[in-house]
Computed example of a mutant assay.
Amino acid sequence: MKALVIGGAGYIGSHMVKTLQRAGHEVAVFDNFSTGHREAIEDVKIYEGDLQAAAEIDPVLSGYRPDLVLHFAARSLVAESMVDPALYHANNTCGVMTLLDGMRRHKLDRLVFSSTAAVYGFPQQRRIDESHPTAPINTYGWSKLFCESMISDYCRAYGLRAAVLRYFNASGADPSGTIGEAHEPETHLIPNVLRAAVGRADKVTVFGKDHDTRDGYCVRDYIHVNDLADAHLLAYDALNRADQPDFQLYNLGNGQGFSVIEVLRAAEAVVGRTIPMELADRRAGDPPVLVAGAGKARSILGWTPKIPELHRIIATAWRWHQEQRY
């Protein structure tokens, strides 16, 4: 199988590339390297370009002719999306429309799209499955929901087969230690905890301890990044099994939640020392609990996370942070 990974130099994209390579597939990457890292991908054909420009993605689609296109090229900082919504709708929404039009022109009909639990907005139940209402509370979530709607329309009207995967908290790093999570700025909890542990930050800031949870701290569902990548390949298999053009939608999460303080304590156990913490006021609009209902992916795709334990997820990330290469 020939795969084209859009945004393949980013955190999740680079893990997808490695997963595809290990499975023996031919892989190419299309990336503008605005946030991705060249050092994160190796032994792969690289196309550098802007997804918003049809003139830059079209030659790749027509020349490489992938069997599967995987899209990871979104901007994903919630706060930034509220300050600069134009950036998010241009990069995320318009970029996906350009890709879909290119795939249609060149008769490419297999797409797996990385989406987000941010499309659900403020949770109405403690465990969120795919039937939960979508009501984003930030521009990032809206941009992803618009993309999902476009993809569904293209499946219905033009014969596209697509799977949309709504991630909860992607975490960890490849156990090899060669690739990991390196954002600037870094907004995710586990890498920020480990940055403090390794001395790249003075402390980790925790927002609020008065949430409606078992210990007062926010609870989130953490899923290992390699388990996410595995789900993409299973989704491709499911698209190939479908009798007709199809739109498929799956949540991806472990189905269990850990509080911020539980993550901190687990990280301290992994690194073997206390990690400095600073308590700050809770952030407006921060849901107390976000936990995935991922039974659909388990039953239909046959997907089972291989690294579900929090301490193992953190241990893979810790190896990366100690040996960080980019």
Rank of each mutant, 00 (worst) to 15 (best):
H188C: 10
V198K: 01
E184R: 13
A162Q: 06
P133Y: 09
P175E: 12
P133H: 11
G208P: 09
M150H: 07
S143N: 12
E130P: 07
E130W: 06
H188P: 00
P191H: 02
S131P: 01
T139F: 08
N192Q: 13
F207C: 12
T134F: 01
K144C: 04
G199K: 00
P191T: 04
V193H: 02
G180C: 05
I128S: 04
V206M: 14
I151E: 04
L160R: 07
G159P: 09
T205N: 06
F168S: 00
R195Q: 14
E184Y: 11
A197G: 07
V164G: 03
Y140W: 03
I137N: 08
F207K: 03
A163M: 01
E130S: 12
Y140I: 08
H183S: 08
A197W: 00
A163L: 03
G199I: 10
K203A: 15
I128V: 15
D153I: 06
H132L: 07
H188I: 09
R195E: 11
W142V: 08
I190D: 08
R156P: 01
D153A: 15
T134Y: 01
L194N: 06
Y158F: 15
P133A: 15
R166P: 00
G159N: 13
A173N: 08
I128L: 13
P191R: 03
C147D: 13
P185I: 14
A173W: 01
V198N: 11
N192I: 06
V204G: 08
A170G: 11
V204Q: 02
F146W: 14
N138V: 06
S171W: 00
R195G: 09
C147N: 12
A197E: 04
A197I: 05
Y154I: 12
G199H: 10
E184I: 02
H132W: 05
Y158G: 02
G159C: 14
Y154Q: 10
V193K: 01
P133I: 10
T139M: 14
Y154F: 13
F146G: 04
A173R: 01
A201P: 03
T178I: 10
N192L: 14
V206N: 04
T178W: 03
T205R: 08
P185K: 08
E186G: 05
R156I: 10
L160P: 00
L145R: 05
E186I: 11
G208L: 14
A201R: 10
W142Y: 07
E148Y: 01
S131Q: 07
N169D: 05
A201T: 09
K144M: 12
V198A: 11
D174W: 00
S171T: 04
M150P: 00
T205D: 14
I179E: 04
C155H: 07
